[in-house]
Design a protein around this nucleic acid. Sequence first.
DNA 1: CGTGTTTGACCGGCGC
DNA 2: GCGCCGGTCAAACACG
Length: 567
Amino acid sequence: MEKRTSPVKEEERHVVPAAAGDIEGGEIGKFGHKLRVANRDFAKPTSPADDQIQQEDELKSTRAEVGEAREENERLKKVLTRIVKDYQALQMHFFDIVQQQPPPANKTPSELRAVDDNVTIPDVDDVELEPELVSLRLGTSAMSGGGGVHEKEEKRAGKGDPRVGDDDHEGLTLGLDVSKFGSSASHAAAAATEPPPPSFSSDNSSEEAKEQEAAGDQPWPPGKAAAKNLRSEDQEEVTPPAQVKRARVSVRARCDTPTMNDGCQWRKYGQKVSKGNPCPRAYYRCTVAPLCPVRKQVQRCAEDMSILITTYEGTHNHPLPIAATAMASTTSAAACMLTSGSTSAPRLSGISAPSSSTTAYINPHGPSHFYLQNQLITPSSNSHPTITLDLTNKYNSSNFAPSAPRYPTAPTTFNFSSSIESNSMPSWTSACSSASSQPPQPYNNKSTAHMYSSLNQAYWQRAATSALPPPAPNNMSTDTIARAITSDPSFQSALAAAITSYVGARSNDANANGASNYGSSRYLDRSASLGSARQGGLMLLQPPMPVVVSGPKSASGSPEDDMEQAD
DNA sequence: CGTGTTTGACCGGCGC
DNA sequence: GCGCCGGTCAAACACG
């Protein structure tokens, strides 16, 4: 570059000696090229006298231009500075809000219902500024209402919460874990009275944190060793009587890579061939932070090897990078949805549901279809309430109705898609159709991740209210609740956004996703990465991604049971 | 040498 | 009580 420009400089000096000297060195860097070009232009040989005058004029104009450019540069600098400051202030504000936000359980059911009945999707600004809207702990609200739980589940809950708390008390927990929805009333009450641990980070974090705190902070079935060690210490946390197994969120997507990139760091700790699926199931553990309880299972669909089934379980106890936040938020939202259904269903509808499985079908390819299917399944080994987010085109009616349900027993199926019509968000229809008519890749990962923040927040507000079962009436069925939740554009868009980002990112670097070279010590402390993670944990706000929701075409069976079956 | 993966063994839950 | 199964552990291994 330097060599290329030097001849021009020579020309400048020769033709217009004053030019170079009048320009500040700094400005030369920015506008020198322009100046040099201008000089070269008027250096063309013409009549000497006129040329001299013309050159001077042009030089003046060029100087003026440079001055303007300089001013513009300064102006832009100031604007940029202001934007950065605003962003930082906003970020701080966001964290403050997240940290200060009281658990939704503090609200009375009536309050929540009132909100629920007239929920309006808040503007991005509203979401951002209004604490209530920022609250991401709504997933826990389901907990407060969670009364009926199985004895078995209670037993499990009592047994399992060893790993608890260390992280939570540090205030770093990210919480959106939905797993605690089964908490007993007493536990719920405790949760309601206790302020959530301070949590920063992404949307789901606060929820998860709260849930962890409330339910004993044991997102995952602890490792045996950990369980043994901690069981005695954390009696309190173990006590929560009625705790169901952790909710799981399963994502099905066509993916040719070993794993999908969800932005987190994972370490594979096991692989096993499960019954009913020749494809081995890989077990991954989140290694972004030490002791992060989140794990995921990755398995190919037996019927369609191109479909990758990723099942998430647990709550991150650390801030997440943006990309990871998107997925975590999605899973949390889905889990929250599931939670609300599972908790309320037994109580409200009088159906004793050992566990619940909800499937959200999203067809990213064809006409946008999204529907949720909440299924009550028998408490087999797969007693984990599971929500499946289906990104495959399995939704097609032709493929959709399975010949026979794969559940051990025919699940009681609740379909709430009927009400989930585009009329709830008419304006989204067209946009979504176009967006979803393409392969997964088209979605912008970052933008969706960002947008998810606001959407998720909006959803959580709604979800909290929806999830909280009304005090008395038994006429409110799972269907009603699920309908309320799933019909929420915020949830839909949030889900779609995160999912699409998820899918879009999957091909970017599957390696980085599966397990990349992170961490300083083997399987141990990675706290060093938290700083950056936190930085990325805060997501920007963007307009919601349009999502069209349509009702399910079939209510019978689950086309989607690979995961559940495998589990 | 540090890190992640592989893989057989182990454990606990569950059904019979 | 036994066996099956899902899930996890941890030593051995591979890789950069």
